[in-house]
Design a protein around this nucleic acid. Structure first.
Lengths: 202, 202
DNA sequence: TGACGAACCGAACGGTCGTGCTATTTTGAG
DNA sequence: CTCAAAATAGCACGACCGTTCGGTTCGTCA
């Protein structure tokens, strides 16, 4: 790794932490330069524009998400255990120490939901991929016989997604002590519903 | 209503719309002044500081939420119908025409979750109140015999909250066409669970 | 008629923003 | 050790930021 790449990587790590606190738009070149001990122009040379910096912050986060959430879960046994691992890793992700301000995707989602551009495209693509990963894990659980055969995996992914996103707000904004417990209970209810035999549900 | 109050009200209406698009922090005095056809200083005179402006925007939103979501639901029959009305009104709220950028509370939650101050305090208080309204509606449904007698109403409110917040992301960011259908289905599953008789659930 | 207060404007302040330009230093390969 | 290339600094720019202040218009009431 050359010096430039090393610096760039260091900057992105710091930028991700900063972005989780103040949002993608809130990451100013000057503030970021101070944090990593570079001059504004010195740092700017690594990123052609602020928009490009934002895209690269998102790309960094997406890569980390794959490493920290998806990859370890893939090593779990196919079926329900893998689905559970995906969800639990997801909860850990939201409180990762490299994102002191919380999940960057949620912050970015609010900022970008109405602002077209490459940053939004990247975010939307990654979130759709993630929903598809959840759905596919549920599909596998169906084939393994863990989940009922008539399960709507798109519905399952949607509900899991909502539970995790909701958790972020209840725990971070409201600081509800029972948040984690309730979120897990909600997820168990989702799993139970997915597990119910078709005949019993019909 | 005096001239000043009229202007202030007009400004707040416009500010709420703007804030839903660019966030509370994104509402700059200059931009807002342009929108309502005032000078920066003329507008500023109505609000002692930017922080105060943000608080008043939130207060305006909270008042509208009470009018648009809570009040009409209170007129519905006690019990499950009222719970359903609260949820359905909530979904309507998130796409109200006076908030073209989506629910202001979600935008504010992301901005304020780690920024102490009066704006955060107001937001947190209102959201806790809202969760309590949901829980109380569920409690009434218990007493009416619509919901099972051993229902955890805090859990119920938490899950309903998550479903609605999740919906906002899936519909606004991902623009998933099936979002509304899936969100409603998730809510029906929550209602079903709340309705199940204690003996059957134990 | 004259005074007063409310409502609003214009100009300006110090700061920070993103982004160019030109140097200067540092790195790494031959 | 050399020297081109890469990495970083210094500086300046125009734009916008929140905020202050002194002035102007105008309706109200004595």
């Amino acid at each position: 790794m050359s010096k430039g790449e090393e610096t760039r990587s260091h900057v992105l790590r710091e930028a991700l932490a900063l972005a989780s606190e103040v949002g993608l738009e809130g990451v100013s070149i000057g503030k970021l330069a101070d944090r990593v001990g570079l001059s504004k122009s010195g740092l700017f040379a690594h990123f052609d524009s602020k928009e490009s910096l934002q895209v690269q912050i998102l790309a960094e986060a997406i890569a980390r998400f794959a490493d920290m959430v998806v990859a370890p879960a893939i090593k779990k046994p196919r079926g329900e255990p893998r689905v559970r691992a995906l969800f639990e890793n997801w909860l850990k992700w939201a409180v990762a120490d490299f994102m002191p301000g919380g999940c960057i995707f949620i912050a970015a989602a609010v900022e970008l939901d109405d602002k077209p551009g490459p940053a939004r495209d990247l975010l939307v693509g990654s979130q759709r991929d993630w929903l598809e990963v959840l759905a596919e894990a549920a599909r596998i659980a169906m084939r393994e016989g863990h989940f009922r055969s008539n399960l709507d995996v798109g519905q399952f992914a949607h509900e899991a997604y909502s539970i995790a996103y909701g958790h972020h707000f209840v725990s971070r904004l409201l600081r509800e002590p029972k948040a984690l417990q309730r979120t897990r209970k909600g997820f168990e209810r989702l799993i139970d519903d997915a597990r119910a035999s078709p005949s019993a549900s019909a």
